[in-house]
């Protein structure tokens, strides 16, 4: 609107555009060509989305030669903004001397920020590419060590990506 209340048009419609019918025909042509384009839908339960390595799925503990890399320093638990991680340390005969006797992530609290992965000095906790998380109770959502430990072979792409991008 101009200052005098008049509508200012930069470009007026030409005669055929004002007739409206040819423009509708153009629109119809676009709609019909869209109909035959390939679909973008994943048929989810049958056909699953495999995320790229940069994807932040649920955090897991790296398991190397049957034991976790984790030395139970507690940094991840400190940095976690949602207070989802609980670590209890204990001593071990192995070279690393310390290991977590209890490592729990409450997946209802977890916000998938990836701070734990970032802060970890041992690269012991990383974000996996798993995104299917279903629980039927609060207790079920607390993942203990048995659920978190993942063999290192499965996490190679993510570790590789971390090496190149961090």
């Amino acid at each position: 609107m101009g200052s005098n209340g008049k509508i200012i048009r930069k470009k007026d419609l030409n005669f055929w555009q004002r007739m409206y019918i040819p423009e509708i025909a153009k629109g119809l042509r676009l709609t019909i060509t869209q109909m035959f384009k390939p679909k973008v839908t994943y048929q989810y339960p049958d056909e699953k989305f495999v995320p790229p390595p940069s994807f932040r799925g649920r955090p897991v503990l790296v398991e190397e030669q049957g034991v976790e890399r984790c030395v139970a320093c507690g940094l991840c638990s400190r940095v976690c903004p949602a207070l989802a991680i609980e670590v209890q340390a204990s001593e071990t005969e192995l070279e690393k001397e310390r290991y977590p006797i209890k490592f729990e992530i409450n997946m209802v609290r977890c916000i998938f920020c990836g701070f734990c992965e970032e802060v970890c000095p041992e690269e012991a906790i990383v974000m996996s590419n798993e995104y299917e998380l279903v629980f039927t109770s609060q207790e079920e959502a607390i993942f203990g060590k048995e659920k978190l430990l993942t063999p290192i072979e499965k996490l190679r792409p993510r570790l590789e990506w971390l090496k190149n991008n961090r």
Binding site: T31, Q34, M35, F36, P38, K39, V40, Q43
Partner: peptide, 10 residues
């Protein structure tokens, strides 16, 4: 179905 096809869905 047609609506879905127009929007590249199934």
């Amino acid at each position: 179905r047609v609506s879905a096809f127009v929007q590249n869905r199934v």
